[in-house]
């Protein structure tokens, strides 16, 4: 492979985001959607037929996912894989 081709490939590799960044994105988006749904159901008084619905698991579990997602995204926002 020509030298400049190798350099170009090395540059590309350096720019790759680590998997943890993408894990954070998935958790953040899904967590936000779940929390928002839970909050809407709570505030609008939508009745759920599930057992333990009074604990509103969507709100706190979705919130936990948002926090975990944010940690992963912020900790890896400037990271790249060597």
């Amino acid at each position: 492979m020509p030298e400049e081709g190798k350099n170009a490939m090395a540059d590309n590799v350096k720019k790759m985001k680590p998997i943890w960044f993408f894990v954070g994105l998935v958790l953040l988006v899904m967590g936000a959607v779940i929390t928002a749904t839970g909050l809407y159901d709570l505030l609008a008084g939508v009745e759920s037929k599930t057992v333990l619905a009074r604990l509103h698991p969507s709100v706190w579990w979705g919130g936990l996912m948002v926090v975990a997602g944010l940690i992963f995204v912020l900790a890896n926002r400037n990271s790249t894989v060597d």
Partner: peptide, 15 residues
């Protein structure tokens, strides 16, 4: 999952 998960969380469990 069907017993405990309300909408939104059901989608997460199935995913």
């Amino acid at each position: 999952i069907a017993r405990y998960f309300p909408r939104g969380l059901i989608g997460l469990g199935i995913t």
